[in-house]
Amino acid sequence: MKQEHAEVIEHQPIQGGYNLLVMHAPGIAPDVRPGQFVHVQVPHLNECVLRRPFSVFKTEGQRLAILYKDVGKGTRTLGNLRPGEGLNLIGPLGRGFPALQEGLYPVLVAGGYGMAALYQTARLLPVKGTAFFGGRTGGDILCVSEFENLGWDVRITTEDGSLGQAGRVTDALDPWMKNELGSREPELFACGPTGMLNAVADRALEQGWTAWISMDTNMGCGVGACLTCVVKVHDGRGGWSWARSCREGPVFECRELFREPANVTNRKSMP
């Protein structure tokens, strides 16, 4: 983990409110593993005391890129940064996605910025499998050609049917599991909205598969000091304890996560 002043190399809107931000971050970029994140101090946002966490989309030598969506004042202010300007990063942070287990077939499930968060995993996995991307509309589906160029079989669903199959990710995933998976055992890697993650975990738990799930929690410090970002995990004695998403996560194996009927760790999806 390092703190460094990175320099913006490239910054451009891509689609659906998402922006690509490429930085020169020589201290951090070479150490990033798939699924890790950086904690970004948004410049010129002096009334905000907290950094903003973003998954690392790509690294290339000393370059580090994030893909972020404009959802509030931090991400909006970030949008004003021009090439040559600096911003302060802490990273790489958290426990990312592990290597593929020998003999298993990799399956990615992504929604929202999950497509960015999984890209580095998709790139490094030795076997290219099937990737399920879901969104509300076509503009939410990112990086399809990048994944296809790596050799992934990408299956798209959108709720409004504007791209790919109409429906949710599970409307593509379930028939695929039934008709196309065959005798292969999958290992799942997922990042997206809580509902999507729960659906992935449900299927993995039912079938006894391994599923790695990247959690989106509120964050304070990002380094394990403030105990903001906690999620419930099994404590090995039949009960639960808190794990810090910024240290022990954000990626958890679905059997580590403690789920109770009413337990929703992400307030954004609460009714």
């Binding site: 005391v49 509120n218 304070g220 403030c226 903001t228 906690v230 808190w242 760790t265």
Partner: peptide, 9 residues
């Protein structure tokens, strides 16, 4: 400790 959300900016 408490349930999340535990902090708000």
């Amino acid at each position: 400790g408490n349930e999340p959300p535990r902090t708000a900016e």
